[in-house]
């Protein structure tokens, strides 16, 4: 249901927690997103953006673990 796209937080503008905006880069497109829901986000972080809002900071370590999961399969696990 929810199209949310990961992008890199390039810069942050504003102090008002409701209206804090970030410039987010998605493979060459830069668009502003509201950062109210990711108060901990800092420049360089990757955030998930939905309908103009960052809804979470992507956990890089967890992403690596997810990708590495496959490597743990023993050959006999595979058909």
């Amino acid at each position: 249901m929810c199209l949310a796209v990961p992008g890199q937080l390039l810069s942050i503008e504003g102090d008002d927690p409701l209206a804090r905006l970030g410039r987010v880069g998605f493979a060459g497109i830069v668009k502003r997103a509201n950062l109210a829901y990711v108060p901990e986000a800092k420049c360089g972080d990757y955030v998930l953006v939905h309908a103009g809002f960052a809804i979470t900071v992507i956990d890089e370590a967890e992403a690596r673990k997810t990708l590495a999961y496959l490597a743990e399969f023993e050959p006999e696990d595979l058909a």
Binding site: V5, G7, G25, F26, A27, G28, I29, V49
Partner: peptide, 13 residues
């Protein structure tokens, strides 16, 4: 597909 077009298509779905 160029990067900016790719990014735009992902954002817009």
């Amino acid at each position: 597909v160029s990067d900016p077009v790719r990014g735009a298509c992902e954002i817009l779905g």
